[in-house]
């Protein structure tokens, strides 16, 4: 119900373990840093605000609008969270949203959560901040800066996050880059327009009712300089890397192959045990049948046990 039809929440199983773990490490470091910044720089009001706004963004994703042919669009929220709260709290808000989607609603996997957090909470927020801040500055604080900045921030954050997702799938060897990059990039170029339009709608409403909230987003420049630079680097890096990967999929395939090679290289560890010690295992069909029987027995006895237990419990 809360899942969007073409989301970029990667489920478990689609990323190789190494890729999933690397992105877990990156996300943990960034989120840890964001936590430190938030508790250092911002006042204690921020804790309830972040929690409540995360809930509002989550619920805001239910507000859909029909596009065409039975499809509908809805808000994803990285850009609007960044504009309303500033980059560091926005990272934490998006972290909450994406984590709870994975933990409770299985929208995105648990092992893949690191990569999903990277795409939506880190890339989404950093790119949004870089774009919005730049356009707002260029506009000299005029109104059009808010709306144009909001639209472009929303569009580009979705697009770059989708490219990042496509590249993660390609490096994992799940989806070839020359297919996943144009497909993800293409679909999300359209989804991004929807996100941009809704974001402008949100901004227009807030501008006409609570203009003071938009002024809050205009934080001192020093606070977000790092995010700005990171956002710029991510945007440029992925914008250059993904067409390259798409045009020369061999490069990424090479990475994937090396990666597969590394996994295969674990082989020698086991060759210490000679073949014939496990006669049942070297025959794969037999091993599969054995596993099937073992599994069926396990399930049978557990079911029996539960049935028995239930029957005995009822009269008590």
């Amino acid at each position: 119900m809360l899942a969007s039809p073409v989301a970029m929440h990667i489920p478990d199983g689609f990323l190789s373990t190494t890729v999933a773990l690397i992105f877990w490490i990156i996300s943990v470091v960034v989120i840890g840093f964001a936590l430190k910044r938030v508790s250092q720089e911002l006042d204690e009001r921020q804790v309830p605000l972040m929690g409540v706004l995360a809930a509002a963004i989550f619920a805001g994703q239910m507000l859909n609008f029909t596009v065409a042919g039975g499809t509908s669009g809805h808000l994803l929220g990285a850009a609007i969270a960044t504009i309303l709260l500033g980059p560091w709290p926005a990272i934490l808000v998006l972290t909450s949203v994406v984590s709870i989607q994975a933990l409770i609603f299985q929208d995105g996997g648990l092992l893949a959560l690191g990569a999903n957090l990277f795409n939506m909470a880190v890339v989404g927020v950093a790119v949004s901040y870089m774009v919005y801040r730049t356009i707002y500055r260029v506009s000299g604080g005029k109104n059009w800066g808010i709306f144009v900045g909001g639209f472009v921030a929303a569009w580009l954050s979705i697009e770059i996050a989708a490219l990042s997702c496509a590249l993660q799938l390609a490096i994992s060897g799940t989806s070839p880059a020359n297919i996943s990059v144009p497909a993800m990039g293409g679909i999300h170029a359209l989804i991004g327009i929807g996100e941009g339009l809704i974001t402008v709608g949100v901004l227009a409403f807030i501008y006409s009712t609570r203009r003071d909230l938009l002024a809050q987003g205009e934080m001192p420049a020093t606070q977000g300089k790092l995010v700005w630079v990171v956002g710029l680097l991510i945007a440029i890096g992925l914008a250059i890397l993904s067409p390259l990967a798409s045009a020369y999929p061999d490069g990424l395939e090479w990475v994937a192959e090396q990666h597969g090679f590394l996994e295969a290289a674990r082989g020698p560890l086991y060759t210490i045990i000679p073949d014939y010690v496990f006669p049942g295992i070297s025959n794969e069909a037999l091993a599969t049948i054995m596993a099937g029987i073992l599994g069926a027995l396990l399930v049978f006895f557990v079911a029996l046990g539960v049935g028995y237990w239930r029957r005995n419990r009822k009269p008590a």
Binding site: V52, F65, G73, I80, V200, V202, A204, I206, T209
Partner: peptide, 19 residues
């Protein structure tokens, strides 16, 4: 899309006030 955005904005304002 703008209407949906307005509704989401409404939700966020309520979020700020509730916070």
């Amino acid at each position: 899309a703008n209407i949906a955005g307005g509704m989401a904005g409404n939700l966020f304002i309520r979020g700020f006030e509730r916070a």
